[in-house]
Structure formats: structure tokens, C-alpha cells
């Protein structure tokens, strides 16, 4: 379970999050929607621990642990996973190599034994197959020369492999064609479990047809301004964000 209370965040003196409250229960899929610049991506970076954001107030608690006191790698080991909107390229590092380094670093940090190579390969191949990722892509340098869709699928593959407790999907649907969207969404749905929660950030209701949320939250001006069930997403799709922008201006 993730609880965010009164989160206030600035970057270079500009306030982005302005007293944000949000609770995501175990097994829950929460969707966050909102206009451009409402602070959605900032929220995902702050939960994952990106350095340049200054947290002025509030707390983020994951399963009773204060996440804000942890390094990004410790947060990862504790189960925070962020599927990036723009996954980074790591030239010269084979995807397989990267995956193994990441998995073993997390296991080590949790005091677990490293995975043997055959076990590791078995797991990667199973996940790759489900996401229709060809094997030779795993031999290529991570994300280098991958198409937008391939990069996003690779994020889901990493998510499947690392088995996080709390997954953030930052606009995973952007840049995906309809087939790629379906594959990615199926990958996410396969990971749904009673002790794993998701925060799905998106502009469009379309993604939520495939990944059906338990709750939908509207973000504007750096906080949650409205929460509801999955029907809220449909309402937004029909009416746009105009109401909320007006609210923000007022």
C-alpha cells in the first residue's frame, strides 16, 4: 500500500506539487489523468527518487516505510518500479546484461541469493515471449535503436522480471499503435495481483479500456482535484479538462 500525504515539491524554485494526497491500496489499479503540466510526471519521479526535485513537505509511505529517506536504488529494492515515459538508452550494454545486473542488485540488497544464469534466462525468455519481444532484441544494447513501441514493451518486460510491489506507468500508451498498446496492456494485466498495486498515468481514456482501473484521480495544479471510479475517465474523455483548468485558474 502506498500513501502520499500533503506532498509539496519544487524544482528550481517552481512549485509543481502543491499538497497532493493519494492512497493506493494493495491490489488496486489507480489511474491518474490530467492536463499537460499538471504535475503527473513529477509525481512519478518524486516517488522513484529523482534527485533534482525538492520535497518541501509531506510524506510517501510504502508498506509502512518512509520512501523519501531512501536512495533510488533502495526504493527499487523495496518494490518501487517506474516504467519511464522516455526510457533511456544505455549504449554498449546488452539488454540481457542490464536485466541481470538490475535483478541481482535488487536481490542482493534484499539479502537474497543471486539467480543462477539458467534460472535467469528462463524467466527472461518467458516474459519476453508474452510481450512478443524477439530474443535477439535482448542481445542488443538496451533501448539503443529500439522503436518507441519496443522501448515501452521493454519497460514492461523489466517490470515483469523485477516483480515490484508498486508499479508506476508514466504515459506508457504514448507513441504506441493499437497492437503494441494491447500487448503492453496484456503484459500489465498479467502482473495484476492482490499484493501489487499500480499507478497508471495517462492523458487518454483509451489505455483504460485495456487496463481497467479501480479508481481514477484527476490531477490539476499539482494536486488531486477529483477522485472516482472508472466511469470518471469516460466523463473526462467526453468533456475534456476545461472544468479543471478553470478551477486551477480560479
Amino acid at each position: 500500500m502506498l500513501e502520499i500525504k500533503n506532498l509539496v515539491v519544487e524544482i528550481e524554485g517552481t512549485r509543481i506539487l502543491n499538497g497532493l494526497d493519494l492512497t493506493v491500496n494493495n491490489g488496486e489499479i489507480a489511474a491518474i489523468m490530467g492536463p499537460n503540466g499538471s504535475g503527473k510526471s513529477t509525481l512519478s519521479y518524486v516517488v522513484a527518487g529523482k534527485e533534482e526535485y525538492e520535497v518541501l513537505d509531506g510524506e510517501i509511505i510504502l508498506d509502512g516505510q518512509n520512501v523519501l529517506e531512501m536512495e533510488p536504488s533502495e526504493r527499487a529494492a523495496a518494490g518501487v518500479f517506474l516504467a519511464f515515459q522516455y526510457p533511456l538508452e544505455i549504449p554498449g550494454v546488452a539488454t540481457m546484461t542490464f536485466l541481470k545486473a538490475a535483478l541481482n542488485a535488487q536481490r542482493k540488497s534484499r539479502g537474497e541469493a543471486e539467480l543462477t544464469t539458467p534460472d535467469f534466462i528462463k524467466r527472461v525468455n518467458a516474459a519476453a515471449q508474452q510481450l512478443e519481444i524477439p530474443k535477439d532484441m535482448l542481445k542488443r544494447a538496451l533501448n539503443v535503436g529500439f522503436s518507441g513501441g519496443e522501448k515501452k514493451r521493454m519497460e514492461i518486460l523489466q517490470m515483469a522480471l523485477l516483480e515490484p510491489r508498486f508499479c508506476i506507468l508514466d504515459e506508457t500508451d504514448s507513441g504506441l499503435d493499437i497492437d503494441a498498446l494491447r500487448i503492453a496492456a496484456e503484459g500489465v494485466n498479467a502482473l495484476r495481483s492482490p499484493d501489487r498495486s499500480f499507478l497508471v498515468i495517462t492523458h487518454y481514456q483509451r489505455l483504460l479500456n485495456y487496463i481497467v482501473p479501480d479508481s481514477v484521480h484527476v490531477m490539476a495544479g499539482g494536486k488531486i482535484v477529483k477522485s472516482g471510479g472508472k466511469e470518471l475517465a469516460l466523463e473526462l474523455e467526453a468533456n475534456g479538462y476545461a472544468d479543471y483548468k478553470a478551477q486551477e485558474a480560479a
Partner: peptide
Amino acid sequence: SEDQLFYCMQRGLDEEE
């Protein structure tokens, strides 16, 4: 880049790694 480092660290590697 800071972004590359952050990406790796988000996956569980510490800064030196």
C-alpha cells in the same frame, strides 16, 4: 547523463554500479 544514472538506479543499481 543524470537521466541515465537515474534510470539505472531506478532499476536497483547503486550509483557506483
